[in-house]
Amino acid sequence: MKLPISKPGTSVENKTGDWRTFKPDIEVAKCIKCGTCQRFCPEGCMGDEGKVPIVNFDYCKGCGICANECPVKCIKMIPEK
C-alpha cells in the first residue's frame, strides 16, 4: 500500500531562488525594523519581524514587494548577476 501522503513543510527542499532576475538590496542603516517587508513577502524569506531583514536568497523570487512597500524606501531592487 503506497499512501499518497507528504510530510509537512517539505517544500523548503524546493529552492525557488533561481527564478529571480532582480534582487533586494537593503540599506541597513535606514531600516526602521517595522516588519512590513517581512509581513508582505510571499515567500516568507525576509527573516524575523522586528529585526533588520535578512533575505534568504534560496527562496527570494525577486518580486520587489519589499522594496515597493518599505515605508522608508531602504530597499532597492537591483539586477541579479
Binding site: 500500500m1 503506497k2 499518497p4 501522503i5 507528504s6 509537512p8
Partner: peptide, 23 residues
C-alpha cells in the same frame, strides 16, 4: 500533521495507480 491529496507528477502518478490496481 501530514498532507493528504497532493498532486502527483507523471513520475509518481502511474505508480500510485498501479499500487491501487494491485491492491
Amino acid at each position: 500533521p501530514i498532507t493528504m491529496g497532493a498532486y502527483a507528477f507523471p513520475s509518481d502518478y502511474q505508480d500510485f495507480r498501479k499500487d491501487l490496481f494491485d491492491d
